[in-house]
């Protein structure tokens, strides 16, 4: 039986986290596509600025202190905080 203190449990969480890519896990210069499931987690304002499900998103630059992130999506160049970026799932091509 799998218990909370079981090391396999933590490994499971680790693997799960590994599997899900978000804008925050992109490497500098890397490109991803915003997944359809993210829709509910994208703030309206970001949607309006072009951060739409299915859109291509590129991580252009990471701020010197690792936050915020400078992304290019749908022709818009935007800076968003990691807090927001980590909620937006992406698919890599």
């Amino acid at each position: 039986m799998l218990k909370i203190y079981d090391s396999r449990f933590f490994a499971g969480i680790f693997l799960y986290q590994k599997r899900v890519s978000t804008i925050a896990t992109l490497q500098k210069g890397e490109i991803g596509y915003i997944s359809e499931e993210s829709l509910d987690f994208i703030p309206l304002k970001l949607l309006e600025m072009g951060c739409l499900p299915g859109a291509e998103v590129q991580l252009v630059q990471i701020a010197p202190l690792k936050d915020p992130l400078y992304i290019c999506v749908n022709g818009s160049h935007l800076a968003i905080r990691i807090e927001t970026a980590s909620k937006i799932q992406i698919l890599k091509s």
Partner: peptide
């Protein structure tokens, strides 16, 4: 606290 800035 939501933050987005356009980089023109």
């Amino acid at each position: 606290s939501f933050f987005v800035v356009e980089m023109p």
